Simulated scan of single mutants.
Amino acid sequence: MDSFSLTVCVSVGYWIWLCLRPVKIVAVNQENNYSDVLVRSFPPTDKGKIDWWLKNKDILKEKYDIPKSSSSGYFTVVFWDFGDGYKEEGKYDRLCFDDMNTKVNCIEKDAVFSVDKSRNMDITFTVYDDDNYRLGQNGDIIKIESD
């Protein structure tokens, strides 16, 4: 096998591993109808992220009571890459969780996915690479075209 073929095989194998590794939920923080979920090994593709949500939304509700809707039915769930773990606030613009009784209660702001329910768009998915999707009435995933 030549080096190019070996490189291609290793790259494909690594991509498959990235897509198939299980998502680890490190912590869930809740404030009103906003939920912050700290994760490791979140799916790398738009489809993988949306499919993971659709497959696991009932488990998230049972285990973590998210999403938690406002009285009008709206909610936001943001999935954050846990990265190198908790840090002190130190650096500008870290996301900190005041309910933790420690100085090491912040993460880098690296959102990987969010799910919102709003009046105008029903359920929308944001994947943070400039693409947004919505859940159609018949369960189809529809890409929202930018203006």
Rank of each mutant, 00 (worst) to 15 (best):
N132A: 12
S72A: 14
V127C: 08
T76I: 14
M121Q: 11
D99Q: 09
E88V: 11
N105C: 10
K91G: 02
F97L: 06
K87H: 12
I66K: 08
L95C: 04
S114M: 12
D99A: 05
V104Y: 05
T126S: 10
N132S: 14
C96I: 03
F75P: 02
S70K: 06
Y128V: 03
D98V: 04
D131T: 12
C106A: 01
G83F: 01
Y86Q: 06
V112Y: 03
Y86N: 07
D110V: 12
Y128L: 06
I123R: 01
T102V: 07
K91T: 10
C96L: 07
G90C: 04
D99T: 04
F79N: 07
F113C: 11
G83M: 01
E89S: 09
A111F: 10
T102F: 04
T126P: 04
K109T: 13
L95W: 04
R94D: 00
D84W: 02
R94M: 00
C106P: 05
D98T: 04
D116E: 14
F82L: 00
E62M: 11
T102K: 10
N120E: 13
C96D: 05
V127P: 01
T126C: 07
A111M: 13
Y64T: 03
K87R: 13
G85R: 02
E88M: 10
G90V: 06
D116N: 15
V115N: 08
S72R: 14
C106N: 06
S70T: 09
D99W: 07
Y64V: 00
K68L: 13
W80G: 02
F82E: 02
D130T: 06
F82C: 01
S114H: 08
Y64W: 03
Y74D: 15
V112K: 05
M121S: 13
D81G: 04
S72V: 15
E88P: 02
V127M: 00
N120K: 14
V115D: 06
N132P: 00
F82N: 02
D93I: 05
K63F: 12
F113N: 11
R119V: 15
T102P: 02
V77C: 06
C106V: 07
D84N: 10
S118N: 15
K103P: 08
K91I: 12
D129F: 00
Y64A: 00
V115A: 08
L95D: 02
G85H: 07
D93W: 14
G90M: 07
I66G: 11
S72L: 13
D99L: 04
E88C: 06
K109G: 05
S71Q: 11
Y74Q: 13
F75Q: 00
S114Y: 06
M121E: 13
D65Y: 12
E62N: 12
K109D: 13
M121G: 09
F75H: 10
W80Y: 10
F79W: 02
F82R: 00
D131Q: 11
G85S: 05
M100Q: 11
S72P: 08
S69T: 12
I107C: 04
T102G: 04
D93Y: 12
K109M: 14
C106I: 09
V127T: 15
S69M: 10
W80T: 01
D129Q: 06
M100E: 08
G83A: 05
V104C: 07
D130K: 09
F79D: 01
N132T: 12
S118V: 11
D129C: 04
T102A: 04
K68H: 10
D110C: 09
R119C: 14
Y92N: 11
G90Y: 08
V112D: 00
G85E: 05
Y92A: 13
D129N: 14
